[in-house]
């Protein structure tokens, strides 16, 4: 099953992954990381196709994709 994992300590809540995801399954959560940013997460891993678009645009290299 493909899945996108957000490495929370790197996320800066910029929403580029939320905007680019073709399945619209990336979202900013209420949870904050150690530096106070609301972290992004994949809210529906079952729908993830492993296309790596989120990881490609992430400027903080905070997303790992498994397929």
């Amino acid at each position: 099953m493909p899945k996108a994992i957000v490495l929370e300590k790197y996320c800066k809540s910029c929403r580029l992954c939320v905007d680019i995801c073709p399945m619209k399954i990336m979202s900013i959560t209420e949870k904050t990381n150690e530096r106070g940013y609301f972290v992004a997460t994949c809210i529906d891993q079952d729908k993830c196709t492993g296309c790596t678009l989120c990881a490609t645009v992430c400027p903080d290299v905070a997303i790992e994709v498994y397929k």
Binding site: Y10, S13, C14, Y37, V57, C58, D60, I63, E64
Partner: peptide, 24 residues
């Protein structure tokens, strides 16, 4: 793993503002 942090980058987080494409 089809996408991971490359070993050319250290573990440090970027000091840029959120969304800055310097990181890319």
């Amino acid at each position: 793993k089809v996408f991971e942090r490359t070993k050319g980058l250290s573990d440090a987080h970027f000091t840029f503002c959120p969304g800055c494409t310097h990181g890319t």
